[in-house]
């Protein structure tokens, strides 16, 4: 059994390097099927004499863990967020539940950081913080984790340009995919904020602020996302939401209803 798994895994790694995704997914399914047969692996955790041996598959690092780590990387390369989530949750027990029994994986922090980034991109902030609580102080110091944590902070504060400059300083090449997605989210956020904060902007400034390359792109973006904006004389006008206007007349019907209900309640009390 073992040599077969390792062989398949070697082929899987090779095709991952070649970016041959079809072969990769096919091999990955085979690998996952093979892993189910080991009883001491998650989710069963059967404690037996072969437990440690199965967990590591007689290697310096745990091979099952290695397989899922590669699966996560594959899903990022294939830009499949659902697969990422699935694979990550299959991988997680190897870090949390059986973590102490294995040697720490060099990939652990990059992958945890990647997951944080994914939650950020999908705007699942509550889950982001739940994951964050699980990390030790040492983990928080790791550049990969720190990157995601700082991004979240800048994102919350509204310092969007810091989010965008962070793209240049990604700690790991797999992060680029999510950073690009994040840039898109940031653009929507900026558009939402500008709409409230400015009366109008010049086309040039708007273009620069929304990180678009040409006027054409800007117009397309406005057309798609914010058709209510108006472009006139080289200026972009935002439609203002109406402020609460001073009340001109007394809302009599509403007041009568309220007063009657007070009277009814008071009668019940006295």
């Amino acid at each position: 059994m073992d040599p077969k798994v390792t062989q398949t895994f070697e082929r899987f790694k090779a095709s991952l390097v070649r970016n041959d995704f079809d072969t990769c997914s096919k091999l990955l399914s085979q690998l996952k099927l093979a892993l189910i047969q080991f009883k001491s692996l998650p989710p069963l955790f059967a404690d037996g004499p072969t437990a440690v041996q199965e967990l590591t598959l007689a290697s310096k690092y745990s091979i099952p863990r290695d397989i899922f780590e590669h699966a996560v990387v594959l899903s990022v390369k294939m830009e499949d967020q659902d697969a990422f989530e699935r694979d990550f949750f299959q991988l997680k027990p190897y870090y949390t539940d059986v973590g102490p029994r294995l040697q720490q994986s060099p990939q652990e922090y990059p992958i945890l950081g990647l997951n944080l980034l994914r939650l950020l991109v999908q705007n699942r902030i509550a889950e982001f913080h739940t994951e964050l609580e699980l990390l030790t102080a040492a983990a928080l110091e790791n550049p990969c984790i720190k990157h995601a944590v700082e991004l979240e902070q800048s994102f919350m504060e509204g310092a969007y340009n810091r989010v965008l400059t962070a793209r240049q300083t990604v700690p790991h090449e797999t992060y680029v995919y999510f950073m690009d997605l994040l840039a898109r989210t940031v653009r929507d956020e900026i558009a939402g904020c500008s709409e409230k904060a400015y009366d109008s902007l010049t086309v040039k400034d708007a273009k620069q602020m929304l990180l678009l390359n040409s006027d054409q792109e800007l117009f397309e973006y406005i057309q798609e996302e914010h058709p209510e904006w108006e472009v006139k004389n080289g200026l972009v006008f935002f439609q203002k939401a109406k402020d609460s206007a001073p009340c001109k007349e007394i809302p009599s019907l509403q007041l009568i209803n309220q007063t009657l209900s007070y009277a009814r309640e008071l009668e019940r009390i006295v």
Binding site: E157, G158, A159, Y160, N161, R162, E189, I190, G192, C193, S194, E195, K196, A197, Y198
Partner: peptide, 17 residues
């Protein structure tokens, strides 16, 4: 931060929103 004015602008605009 390296670019305080741009930061301040986006922070203020988010606070307004």
């Amino acid at each position: 931060s390296p670019n305080p004015v741009a930061d301040a602008e986006s922070i203020v605009s988010k606070a307004i929103r």
